[in-house]
Design a binder for these strands. Structure first.
Length: 503
DNA sequence: TTCCGACAGTGGGGTCGCAAT
DNA sequence: ATTGCGACCCCACTATCGGAA
């Protein structure tokens, strides 16, 4: 099939807001593909680069000016091959050759195909369909239940391979996928809950566990062979020798564990997330060791446990890794759950996760069997500027620059940005207000008279080398504007710095 | 008819490795 | 040596569609 047919379908998908229409269009093209094209086309239409990221971003793309081809000639297979070539060159490290390869591909593409490729490499296809809609489309094209596709996707970790199996072999082929030692599965995620009590009310029986501020890990062991994967299924075994050694020492033949890892200080308290990430991301060993905290067991000595209820998986976890199990309580009374929450915070952790003890392991957030609760903090900050938005926020002033008050009376000190929490109504309002107060505009950012105060919710602050005050907000979002306050009543930089310890 | 779960989109701070300067 | 880029760690929130209640 011609690549231009894929691009045309993408345009059709983008043109409708109906998910059913998107699904129908995508299913239609999936059915018409040659078997060898299914994997590539599935990736392309799910907004993924076939084969994974290729070391090319917006900056590189913006620097290229390539004349478009007059007629479409590229086949789907040609595009996959060209992307693989670009990726291989990125890995070997020649910028000029990479540019040549990219230019070659774009030169064979029509204008519409070029626009598609640029958005694809940039990671922003913006056709209103990604993984979720594509799962529906694969199920429709193969005439199998969506649940079968979801499960195969969870187990294989790869949507293109899942689509290939579904379209070539139907439900029996999908049922062939199992948990394999050495192949990571997509992890189950937690969704936010309002409060601890509302989360507790959702389940008849639950587990309440610490929520740690580290990185997710999935550990596979088969005999002496150990592999460690991240939340996005990237293998990081070589980065974390201490975890490999620890898992190799567990009393079992084979196991798959799900957990979190982080670095601790000498007192056993968690180090700042930045320090955990520095250790986690570095290929060479450093002084700080990573500590694992496991909270699920998906396989033990030849038996898959995915479909068992959490309470049984936790029994297996205690059997194999009791010393490295995350702190938590089973079926606590509300007071005991609250006490555990307070204890987690007192020990420097993020909060707690509440889990349905009867739930099987299922990737994604469906069913909300896992809920997370964190304390929220707020600050009243001054709006210094706003950036123009993209996509559906085009025409609005969107991303706010936020400043804390200088107690010595100087201008506010910038501590971060946020675009979150804004409704369309608020976007409209602030765009008008900022234009009225504009003091400068570089085409990208509009600076304003620093007089509007906005109440910001955040998870905490962290040290920063980017901002002049030495601190930056973490996960900041707008709660509301404070027309009752002026800049002289905003929180000070000292108040922001005061949140560095004890969150 | 109303409610609510799942999705996509819109971006945030910070860290690493690596190539270009 | 420094800087910029790209990939990934962590992530919250709103609008919308369409099935569930």
């Amino acid at each position: 099939m011609l690549f231009s047919d894929v691009v045309a379908i993408s345009s059709e998908v983008a043109a409708t807001s109906s998910r059913k229409a998107k699904t129908t269009a995508l299913a239609g093209v999936l059915r018409r593909l040659e078997p060898a094209e299914v994997a590539t086309a599935t990736a392309l239409l799910a907004g993924e680069l076939p084969g994974g990221r290729a070391g090319v971003g917006w900056s590189t793309l913006a620097s290229l000016q390539v004349a478009a081809a007059p007629e479409p000639t590229l086949e789907i297979g040609d595009v996959a091959g060209a992307i693989d070539e670009v990726r291989a060159i990125s890995g070997s490290g020649s910028g000029q050759r990479r540019t040549d390869a990219l230019t070659g591909l774009l030169g064979l593409a029509t204008e519409a195909e070029q626009r598609f490729l640029v958005r694809l490499f940039g990671g922003e296809l913006r056709q209103g369909a990604l993984e979720g809609v594509m799962i529906e489309a694969v199920a429709a094209a193969a005439e199998v239940p969506t649940g079968s596709v979801r499960r195969a996707f969870m187990l294989s970790g790869r949507l293109p391979a899942t689509a290939e199996a579904a379209l070539s072999g139907g439900e029996p082929a999908l049922a062939e996928f199992h948990l394999e030692l050495g192949r990571p599965i997509r992890p189950m995620l937690a969704s936010p809950a309002e409060t601890l009590d509302t989360a507790l009310d959702e389940f008849t029986e639950c587990s309440v566990e610490y929520k740690l501020d580290g990185a997710r890990i999935q550990v596979h062991r088969d005999g002496d062979e150990v592999h460690v994967y991240t939340r996005t299924l990237r293998e990081i075994t070589r980065n974390v020798g201490e975890l490999v050694a620890l898992v190799r020492g567990l009393d079992c033949r084979s196991v798959v564990l799900d957990g979190e890892t982080l670095a601790l200080d000498d007192a056993g308290r968690p180090r700042p997330f930045q320090e955990t990430m520095a250790r986690f991301g570095a290929q060479e060993q450093r002084d700080e060791l990573l500590h694992p905290y496991f909270f699920d067991c998906l396989h033990l000595d030849g038996t898959d446990l995915l479909d068992l209820p959490l309470r049984d998986r936790l029994k297996a976890l205690s059997q194999v890794a009791a010393a490295h199990r995350i702190p938590g309580v089973l079926s606590p009374a509300p007071d005991d759950a609250a006490a555990l929450f307070e204890e987690a915070l007192a020990r420097g952790h993020e909060g707690v996760v509440i889990k349905d003890l009867s739930s099987p392991y299922a990737a994604g957030r469906r069913g909300k069997a896992w809920r997370k609760v964190k304390p929220e903090h707020t600050l009243d900050l001054v709006v210094l500027a706003a950036e123009r938005g993209h996509g559906r926020r085009s025409g609005y002033l969107s991303n706010l620059h936020l400043g804390a008050r200088d107690p010595d009376g100087g201008p506010p000190i910038m501590v971060g940005k946020t675009f979150k929490g804004l409704t369309d109504e608020l976007l409209t309002w602030q765009t008008a207000e900022f234009q009225r107060r504009a003091t400068g505009d570089d085409g990208w950012t509009v600076h304003v008279v620093p007089e509007l105060v906005v109440e910001i919710e955040l998870d905490g602050v962290q040290t920063s080398s980017r901002y002049p005050g030495g601190v930056a907000l973490r996960f900041a979002r707008v709660l509301r504007y404070r027309p009752d306050k002026d800049a002289a009543e905003a929180d000070t930089i000292e108040a922001v710095r005061g949140m560095l310890r004890g969150g």
